[in-house]
Nucleic acid binder design. Structure first.
Length: 800
RNA sequence: GCCCUGGUGGCGAAACUGGUAGACGCACAGGACUUAAAAUCCUGGGGUAGCGAUACCGUGUCGGUUCGAUUCCGACCCAGGGCACCA
């Protein structure tokens, strides 16, 4: 029963397509712009799931609403189409990954269209399109020119089973994220991007963003800015020295030993003869340790004395030098000073190795007194001073004697950018015989992938591209050259797609500079919290590089960010095939219609929350939509529609307009829809229905359930599409009430309520309250100590 | 271990800057319509006691501030997400 969703939804989807309703004229600068973006999907073989729908409905509501509010809205979609699953599919079936990917894209597209999302399909892009790859490679060459891309041989995570190298973030507990195969450390040639050069700006500009607090915190922690001091320690009896980094230079007098990372370049030189064997044994021991063991926090902190001493520059005391694998070679200076009296980790290490401790802060050693206002002792230059003062004094002193200075370090490391895989953008450089790197010329872009018979990585870590002989060998300026066989990671394409949407077919630039200036930054970006760090950090990095080249004009790409929560199965577990709790959106659309599915997903709770699926939910949403439809369909209501306002619905209508508008703009869709239900219930009860109010309901509901609302709008005798309607506005004067219900409390407990005139005098109100029988019961025989009156809210009577 | 979120009926949730806790919906119960059912419409539901008006209890736990606390402060417990020896 109810409306015919199949007919209505098909009708309007066709109408929108034929009328290009949602195509954005990006050059129309006459209206204010609004750019609303989804994190584009990876077109997997699985199809869209209900989680995608939540994300895309949320942005679609914003897009549709902002159009009605008079904005020129850009709402594009595309495909993050490179990636490992397509390559693994190719390996399994010996089909080209592009075939598989393009077929998936078609399937996704059909699903998106059935859901009625108002995307501008004329702006569609896929990261695998040749004219997209061209510009991804172009940006790489820009990075190369800026010395932000370089080759490095540092150890990486090699996965023999996948025959490829994995980035740190793709390794979980010593196993590959995909497949769960063991991973070992191996030194290999890799392309790196120098994101660390932008660490300070990536950190600083976080303050300018309207992003979820937790995401800002995560990015901050990932960048890991730390302000401390670099201190130079001379090695006793030599001309050599090394630097340490500390955030607690004030405890320098308490330093009783130093630790170098086992990989520290000085270790071999300064180890004493007697200790050579100990050191070698130790190095062997940790080399055979897996990363997992080495980073196990519960394990004892191991280390070994290397027979050399350093001179503490603050007091010229000799302190022993150890190597310890808890000191990381690639953080700070790869060396630390240890203050066992005031640091838990140093304390444990010193105990185990019987090293002297020296207390330099007031308080109890065993409690490792690190309290901020602790005073220093046994520290000639800073005795009696607190931590903050002491740091300033010692930083200044160390600088004067040339033994150190304030230094900022970051946890952030450079981005390992190459993959030894087939299905990614080829890195557009060639190598001459002497290993000289020659970038391709812009005219030679894009460098496309060759067709292969075999997609499997060679197993030695080389990309399958190394087997493509015809492609591999080229001539550059008459000289023999060999192409780079590494490809880019999937992140590359997603780093700049929001720019390409503006001008997806531009053959001369990423996009027309005029468009870039007008449309960026993105006004609203919605996607899963799983991208809180990597994708968003990498995209910000590229954006800043483009900013430095004056290609983009704003410092940050995404002004406002929102993470939708996860939709869980009805058993409160993450949806997955193996758990058997996956909900198929296609079936729901078939049975109840896209409008109902969209409505339910927005109504089920706050957008950011992870919520369990409710099997009755879509049906309930559908019943509500039928209820709205009945206002126009059944004679009972149709005959009540009038052109003359009897004012009985003024308050609820205008309040609804205000609340719904505000809630939509804040992405609080669940409460907006609750209010629309209240309004609907009131229309049901009303003696007559003022036609513009019904129209207002239809317009306000249309971003969520657009097909049915288009149909109803047409039924209310309008020509054309709802997309030409205007968003309703509210009159402040209708929001004022004549009477208000106030609560009366006695000693903090609610005892009665009282309906009064809004502009009643305070004294009158008190009198009324005190004369209520229900109140007298509590006040008779008691002394009234105090009466607190909060206008329009409460009267609080305090009695003895 | 550290950082971030959150904890409210049988369930999903709501509550503006401290001011009538539980809007809206699901499920449930009762009624109307129907030969009947479905659909629809109307009504009722935090708990305990009571026929009842009413009383007491109630927003993870324990304390505090306040006339008044889901909201603010302190300590703790639990769940989810993130990070991993960061000097």
């Amino acid at each position: 029963m109810g409306y015919d969703h199949k007919k209505i939804e098909a009708k309007w989807q066709k109408y929108w397509e034929e009328h290009h309703t949602f195509e954005c004229d990006v050059y129309d600068f006459s209206k204010p712009k609004f750019y609303v973006l989804d994190m584009f999907p990876y077109p997997s073989g699985e199809g869209l799931h209900v989680g995608h729908f939540e994300n895309y409905t949320a942005t679609d509501i914003m897009a549709r609403m902002q159009r009605l509010r008079g904005y020129n809205v850009l709402h594009p979609i595309g495909w993050d189409a490179f990636g490992l699953p397509a390559e693994q599919y190719a390996i399994k079936t010996n089909h080209h990954p592009e075939e598989f990917t393009r077929a998936n894209i078609e399937r996704f597209k059909t699903q998106l269209k059935k859901a009625g999302f108002s995307y501008d399909w004329s702006k569609e892009i896929a990261t695998i399109d040749e004219d997209y790859v061209k510009w991804t490679q172009w940006i790489f060459l820009l990075l190369l020119k800026d010395n932000l891309a370089y080759i490095s041989y540092q150890p990486v995570n090699f996965c023999p089973a996948l025959g490829t190298v994995l980035a740190n973030e793709e390794v979980i507990d010593g196993k590959s994220e995909v497949g769960g195969f063991p991973v070992v450390r191996k030194a290999m040639r890799q392309w790196m991007l120098k994101i660390t050069a932008y660490a300070d700006r990536l950190e600083e500009d976080l303050a300018t963003l309207d992003w979820p607090h937790s995401t800002l915190e995560m990015q901050k922690n990932w960048i890991g800015k730390s302000i401390g001091t670099r201190v130079n320690f001379k090695i006793d009896g030599t001309d050599l020295s090394f630097n340490i980094f500390t955030t607690r230079v004030d405890t320098l007098y308490g330093c009783t030993y130093c630790c170098l990372a086992p990989e520290h370049p000085l270790v071999k030189q300064i180890t004493s003869k007697e200790k050579e064997k100990d050191v070698e044994d130790y190095l062997n021991k940790i080399a055979s340790k897996s990363d997992l063991e080495r980073t196990d926090l519960n394990k004892e902190k191991t280390g070994v004395f290397i027979g050399a001493y350093a001179i503490n520059p603050i007091n010229e005391e000799k302190v022993p030098i150890y190597i310890a694998d808890y000191v990381l070679a690639n953080y700070g200076e790869g060396a630390v000073m240890a203050v066992p009296a005031h640091d838990e980790r140093d304390y444990a290490f010193a105990k185990a190795h019987h090293i002297e401790m020296k207390q330099v802060l007031e308080g109890d050693i065993s409690k490792q007194a690190m309290i901020d206002d602790a005073k220093h002792i046994n520290s000639p230059l800073i005795n009696g001073k607190n931590i903050v003062e002491s740091k300033i004094i010692l930083n200044k002193y160390l600088k004067e004697i040339g033994k150190g200075e304030e230094q900022i370090t970051y946890k952030l490391r450079d981005w390992l950018f190459s993959r030894q895989r087939y299905w990614g953008e080829p890195i557009p450089v060639v190598f001459l015989d002497d290993d000289k790197i020659v970038p391709l010329k812009e005219n030679d872009l894009p460098l496309t992938l060759p067709h292969l018979e075999e997609y499997k990585p060679s197993g030695t870590g080389e990309s399958p591209l190394a087997l493509a002989n015809d492609w591999l060998h080229v001539e550059v300026d008459g000289k023999e050259a060999r192409r780079e066989t590494n490809t880019m990671p999937q992140w590359a394409g997603s780093c700049w797609y929001y720019i390409r949407y503006l001008d997806p077919h531009n053959a001369h630039a990423l996009a027309d500079p005029k468009l870039i200036e007008h449309w960026l930054p993105v006004d609203l970006y919605v996607g899963g919290a799983e991208h809180a760090v990597l994708h968003l950090l990498y995209a910000r990095f590229w954006h800043k590089v483009l900013y430095d080249h004056d290609i983009v004009k704003c410092k940050e790409p995404f002004k406002k960010l929102f993470h939708q929560g996860m939709i869980l199965g009805s058993n409160y577990e993450k949806m997955s095939k193996s758990r058997g709790n996956v909900v198929n959106p296609d079936e729901l659309i078939e049975q109840f219609g896209a409008d109902a599915l969209r409505f339910f997903e927005m109504f089920m709770g706050p957008l950011e929350a992870s919520l369990p699926w409710n099997d009755n939910g879509v049906e309930a949403a559908r019943k509500y939509l039928d209820r709205v439809y009945r206002l126009l369909e059944s004679d009972e209501f149709k005959n009540k529609i009038v052109e003359e306002n009897d004012h009985s619905l003024d308050y609820v209508y205008h309040f609804s307009v205000k609340k719904v508008t505000e809630d939509y703009l804040n992405l609080q869709y669940n409460t907006a829809l609750a209010q629309l239900m209240v309004l609907t219930n009131e229309l049901y009860k009303a003696k007559s229905i003022y036609r513009p109010y019904l129209e207002g309901l239809i317009i306000m509901l249309s971003p969520v359930s657009p097909h049915l609302m288009e149909e109803m709008y047409e039924m209310l005798a309008h020509n054309g599409s709802l997309s030409e309607a205007k968003w309703p506005t509210y009159e402040e004067s209708y929001l004022k009430k004549n009477t208000v219900t106030i609560a009366i409390q006695v000693n903090g407990k609610l005892r009665a309520t009282l309906e009064v005139d809004v502009d009643i005098e305070e004294e009158k109100m008190k009198e009324m309250a005190l004369n209520l029988e229900t109140i007298k019961k509590y006040t008779d025989g008691h002394e009234i100590k105090k009466i607190i009156v909060i206008k329009h809210k409460i009267i609080s009577i305090v009695v003895s």
